[in-house]
């Protein structure tokens, strides 16, 4: 047998290279939740905006970018860059909460509401799998994308989204942990079941409500 049955004693050694540790020195303000009711449990306020990435950064020009929304009939609803913007871009100011324990308040975003994308989509399915350029996936219930709760974001803090932050466009679902706000969004596929995306398969929570601290399985 190569697998050890008891690993509890060495968790500390893992934590030394655990990714969450590397952010505690960047933009750390020291303000904790008891001083700010807008901080979900276990979160710390950040002023800057850390870049998290699970792989190489895709470089997609807006001119080549396309978003596809596929329903259960196999019908594709497609938007190119101009077509997306023509749906109507709105300004939103929201707080974002990363599962690696940082929260950034009052971020100014511009994007297109998912309500606009789903306007002409008829579906009985209740779940959505978001797919990104580069292969990332994350699952979100449809109801969490509608009624003014989610956007295809194209700008943040007055600038077009950098590729490192998911440009040219990313999903923005600020009421869930930020791994749900898939960078480099490419398609949304309706699914009958709540199938796990990338991080959800690999230990993170299927839903991810920061106020309930739904971080892991």
């Amino acid at each position: 047998m190569l697998l050890q049955s008891n690993t509890a004693g060495s968790v500390g050694s893992f934590a030394q290279i655990g990714v969450s540790m590397s952010f505690t020195t960047r933009g750390f303000s020291g303000r904790r939740r008891e001083e700010n009711p807008r901080l979900p449990p276990g979160q710390t306020l950040f002023e800057d905006w850390p870049v998290l990435t699970a792989g190489p950064t895709p470089r997609v020009d807006a001119a080549d970018w396309e978003l596809t929304l596929r329903d259960e009939t196999g019908t594709d609803h497609r938007w190119d860059w101009d077509g997306l913007l023509a749906l109507g871009v709105e300004d939103v100011t929201v707080d974002i909460h990363c599962v690696t324990h940082w929260t950034k308040l009052d971020m100014a975003w511009r994007g297109v509401s998912l309500d606009k994308l789903f306007e002409d989509v008829e579906t009985e399915h209740e779940f959505v799998m978001a797919h990104s350029y580069g292969g990332y996936t994350t699952n979100v219930p449809l109801e969490d994308l509608l009624d003014g709760k989610a956007w295809i974001a194209t700008e943040a803090e007055g600038e077009p989204l950098d590729p490192e932050h998911g440009g040219p466009a990313r999903l923005l679902v600020p009421h869930l942990y930020f791994w749900k706000s898939a960078k480099w969004i490419r398609s949304l596929t309706m699914t009958a079941d709540n199938e796990p995306g990338f991080w959800e398969q690999n230990g993170y929570h299927l839903y991810g409500d920061p106020w309930k601290e739904e971080r892991y399985w």
């Binding site: 290279i17 990714v19 590397s22 850390p50 870049v51 998290l52 990435t53 699970a54 792989g55 990363c98 599962v99 690696t100 791994w179 991080w199 690999n202 230990g203 993170y204």
Partner: peptide, 11 residues
């Protein structure tokens, strides 16, 4: 290995 992620990701 991509360490700046919610976990270590080895590709």
């Amino acid at each position: 290995v991509y360490p700046d992620a919610p976990g270590l990701v080895a590709r």
